[in-house]
Nucleic acid binder design. Structure first.
Lengths: 219, 219
DNA sequence: TTCCTCTTAATGGATTCTACGTAGGCTCGG
DNA sequence: CCGAGCCTACGTAGAATCCATTAAGAGGAA
């Protein structure tokens, strides 16, 4: 999705989907600091006051919402270079957790707002980033609302390949449960679909989390 | 959802959900013009270049994406006062159609961008509006991914009541098909759920499109 | 290190059930 | 009256659920 880079973490534009490119910008290079989080550690929780904007330096992050009875929906995964926390009001409307051990760069929200008030380019970047995330969320609505289990998993793998690919092989940072909660499926359905796609020759599996896309068209 | 008002269309804050309020602002009162659209007429299409930002003056609008085989997902309905078109890049990533006959205020996108560059408040408003829509989309992801058919319809009715209520009775602008495509269901399931909710006494139906919420807790 | 155990994650099968699709009938509005 | 939109019934497909099994890591002791 939204590979939202800071100047510190350039990523070749060619690795990203057309139309999703958000111009590199130093505008968001604001005074901040970096924190480390362990796997499954909470970065922020639902309802907490939103004082920061975040950028993934290394590792992976998931944004999720929980409903009363334990059901969970993950709205997005963020990979290195991605900015998150833009959808927040005064309070966070969702929680963020580390999918893997990770380093996160934090910038005070008020500092961002102050910078945006002085520099139109920064303000424009904020709008662009948020708008790109909105487009992405709307794309995901289509997947959740209208795609079959096989299509969901296929799309997911393609999008991960596009974002986190290193030469044909994709290494997934997240568990089957995370994938299921992202795609609105159960863990069993995700697992079954993986093996089904492997049998069809659409993908190759080297262990549970290392995937090779063999036939993109079949996804 | 996001009742994003311009100064021209004030709506009492009390009719909206807490935490969703976007401050009234004249910042988006920019030189523009108004157009009328007939029911089902296209306001903009997927892939068209995005030259405007829109506000509903009267009527209702749906934003939708189509996939090859005809399946459709509606990502949002917009009611009077709501601003839409913010998720667009250079090209529209979805299409907008009139749910009912409606009047739409259009502002040139470049004019908005120019105003934002000169006035930090305008830039902030754009970010706020977009961010509110992002939160709304993420809320909807939970509904699509993790709610049952009954819960989906229930939530939909509650949210419409909150947005378009006039004294207990809700008049729905959209057809069952639109509701189904919004909730990721089929028209039959929507219809069945309506009658089921009526039999349970949760809602009252005066004709297909006039609904009274009798027991909000049951939804 | 190597082996063993404990724990967690992923897979596979059998069954149930939700909600989908088809088809037909109804109703309200024009 | 006609027709689009809405409702209902019923058989069915696809995903969920429940359960068992296998695989992969993490930690501990010799």
């Amino acid at each position: 999705m939204l590979t939202m880079n800071s100047a510190a973490q350039p990523v070749p534009a060619s690795t990203r989907a057309p139309g999703r490119l958000v111009a590199l910008t130093a505008s968001l290079e604001l005074p901040g600091f970096t924190m480390s989080f362990d796997r499954d550690e909470e970065i922020f929780g639902e309802g907490e006051s939103a004082d920061f904007i975040y950028r993934v330096v290394s590792g992976a992050v998931r944004i999720s919402r929980l409903i009363d009875d334990g059901r969970r929906q993950i709205s997005a995964f963020y990979l290195p270079g991605d900015v998150f926390g833009l959808e927040m009001d005064e309070a966070h409307s969702a929680s963020a957790e580390a999918v893997t051990d990770c380093e996160i760069a934090l910038v005070k929200r008020v500092a961002v707002e102050r910078a945006a008030a002085q520099d139109p380019a920064t303000a424009g970047t904020l709008w662009s980033l948020t708008s790109a995330q909105l487009r992405f969320a709307q794309d995901h609505l289509v997947v959740l609302g209208r795609r079959s289990a096989t299509e969901k998993v296929g799309r997911f793998l393609l999008s991960m390949a596009e974002r986190a690919c290193s030469g044909g092989a994709v290494s997934l940072a997240m568990s089957r449960l995370d994938i299921a909660d992202y795609l609105g499926l159960t863990i069993e359905t995700v697992s079954r679909t993986f093996t089904q796609l492997e049998r069809q020759g659409a993908i190759g599996l080297n262990g549970a989390r290392n995937i090779v896309i063999r036939n993109p068209a079949a996804l």
